[in-house]
Amino acid sequence: MSLFSRIRRRRPPIPDGLWLKCQSCAEIIYVKALNENFKLCPKCNHHYLLSARERIDLLCDADSFSEMDAVMLPGDPLNFVDAIPYPEKQAKAREKSGENEALVTGTGTIEAIPFALGVMDFTYIGGTMGSVVGEKAARLIELARDRRLPLLIVSASGGVRMHESIIGLMQMAKTSGALFYYKQAGLPFLSLLTNPTTGGTTASFASLGDIILAEPNALIGFAGPRVIKQTIRQDLPKGFQSAEFLLEHGMIDMVVPRPQLKATIAGLLRYLLRLPVEAPPEPAPAAASAA
């Protein structure tokens, strides 16, 4: 289910240099301009990867985010070794991402609306789901239910982490089960899918949003394109598994460019929580008489 290795190879992180060649349109762009533009290419609007912290800053009101379970660390139940032992992989991922795991959870406010928020960090082993992601997500969902908070989870994930095999797979059941009780409590869950969201993450909590949003051109799917291509032995249609493709097939509600995300999510929450409508501006008398 995991595809992160392929994706990571093709899309290296943004280097620290001043200039950068856009991954999408090959335009040379000024890194500062990119950073000041929500990490969108100023030329082609390609949405670059956001770290969990950047995403939290984008969505939460200033200083409103309060993190929970920040120091939960994964074990190594299988004694798994690929190129390197799994604990070494974890240490490297911590260093590279600056995060203890692939999911950051907590509570905050978005346009003054209190909410529970989980954000995946793709830089930590491809945002894969193991025990920690599953446990933190389940605790977040349970906390949101207990405190009757709306819930937003932002996914960026290659699926279940193979290094935890069956224990990782069961996190799909754990998180989805927690969402059963959350749904039963009548509370709203918003799921935001970012590039890429695949495998067991898509096949569990990420697809269970009452409303599902995606960033433009994000790769979203169950199986990865390479696996599908190998299975069916034919080329895939253009735009297959893009956010726009999913919108067209009725699988998601909206494709939202990054600069509009915060206002869109807050706007949806105001409906779902039935918050009072703010008084609209008085129409100009001339316009009123013309109508």
Binding site: M72, L73, S131, V132, E135, I167, M170, K174, G177, Y181
Partner: peptide
Amino acid sequence: YEKFRRVGVFSE
């Protein structure tokens, strides 16, 4: 739910 809820290996 408990059966699946408790699966996981981690430390705090």
